[in-house]
């Protein structure tokens, strides 16, 4: 359900470069642009090392200053956050932007009870008395589905199960009714039945409070059920952007198609052939030399390389609402209504 409202977050040409003493600098994120509107969920999808998590940390201003160079712009409500002073970012984090991480245990302070951690956020960002903050914390824990919240307030993170911890973390992220929530692999460490509970909670949140959600995940199944718009990342760049239905029905980037045809699906028959992508993310070539995915791509031609075509592969519009970074995309001849990706991809 994309909305016509002004975007809460606009990321433009974001690049993150890591420099280590005595080593060549590496570009973890390279020219990433996207935006999220209230009540919208976008997905950043990719495998480990594609730069999706670095993107989220760069948006939140959580990257270390030393050895990291962030360029481009991250506009939250029109204000650029790149290079903004720490106190501005601190004011926004927790109050207007919340973040949920993959590992709930290491994101919570093990020596402080859950309740104190939630009320801390409230006392910091909202003018509340201690008693008010406590009542609000109880309300929040109840909202994310933690039973008997007033008793839970006194418990420590290790006393909670994985699903509960993630709920507590979401409660903290929601404490100040943020308008933007960034969830970085929030369910990867959880079991599927618990994952279903958490995803339902996030869905509800977006619908009920109009929060803008940036979902970062490697799981195409999670994306299919949650995100309105999807950005697929590879080697630090967005390589395909599409609405979720378009993306899964007609993937254009061979990488997206390859991912879809290489995951076993619950609804495909026993032994249905999987078409893996050859090699691994290690085989990516620098974007300056050509399409990073070219060495692993079956569609690749010589002009995917910069030395042949004379230019790097650009991200260009590709039909309504779609963008694509590919010179030899997958074709989908028959207008497929309801056709699924596994058939169309190859």
């Amino acid at each position: 359900m994309s909305s016509l409202q002004a975007p809460v977050l606009e990321v433009e040409d974001l690049a993150v470069r890591f420099t280590r003493r005595g080593e060549q600098s590496t570009r973890a994120v390279d020219g990433v642009s996207f935006s999220v509107a209230p009540g919208e969920t976008i997905g950043l999808v990719g495998e480990s090392g594609c730069g999706k998590s670095v993107t989220s940390l760069a948006i939140m201003g959580l990257l270390p200053r030393r050895g990291v160079e962030v360029t481009g712009s991250v506009r939250f409500d029109g204000n650029d956050l790149v290079g903004a002073p720490d106190h501005v970012l601190r004011g926004l984090r927790g109050a207007d932007m919340g973040m949920v991480f993959q590992d709930p245990l290491s994101s919570l302070n093990p020596t402080v009870p859950i309740g104190t951690q939630v009320t801390e956020v409230l006392l910091e960002h909202r003018e509340m008395s201690k008693a008010e903050a406590r009542d609000e914390a109880v309300r929040l824990l109840d909202r994310v589905g933690i039973p008997d919240p007033s008793r839970r307030l006194k418990e420590y993170p290790h006393q909670l199960s994985g699903g509960m911890r993630q709920r507590a973390l979401i409660a903290m992220a929601l404490a100040c009714a943020p308008r933007l929530l960034i969830a970085d692999e929030p369910t990867t460490a959880l079991d599927v039945t618990i994952q279903a509970q958490i995803l339902e909670l996030l869905r509800e949140l977006v619908v009920d409070s109009g929060t803008a959600l940036v979902m970062i995940t490697h799981d195409l199944g999670v994306v299919a059920g949650l995100c309105d718009r999807v950005h697929v990342m590879y080697a630090g760049k967005i390589i395909e952007t599409a609405d979720r239905r378009d993306l899964f029905a007609r993937p254009r980037q061979p990488y997206t198609g390859g991912l879809l045809s290489s995951v076993p699906r619950l609804d495909s028959a026993r032994g249905a052939p999987l078409t893996p992508i050859r090699g691994s993310a290690r085989d990516a070539i620098p974007w300056s030399e050509g399409c990073a995915f070219a060495p692993r791509c079956d569609n690749a031609q010589d002009d995917c390389l910069t030395e042949v075509s004379g230019s790097t592969v650009p991200l260009v519009p590709d039909g309504p609402g779609r963008e694509l970074r590919c010179r030899h995309p997958l074709e989908h001849p028959s207008a497929p209504s309801g056709a699924t990706a596994s058939g169309a991809a190859r």
Partner: peptide, 20 residues
């Protein structure tokens, strides 16, 4: 089974979800 996500929006929208 109902909790396992399927990479297909059409299926995801129509599935029956049994939350535990």
């Amino acid at each position: 089974m109902s909790a396992v996500p399927v990479p297909d929006p059409e299926i995801e929208e129509e599935r029956e979800r049994i939350l535990l």
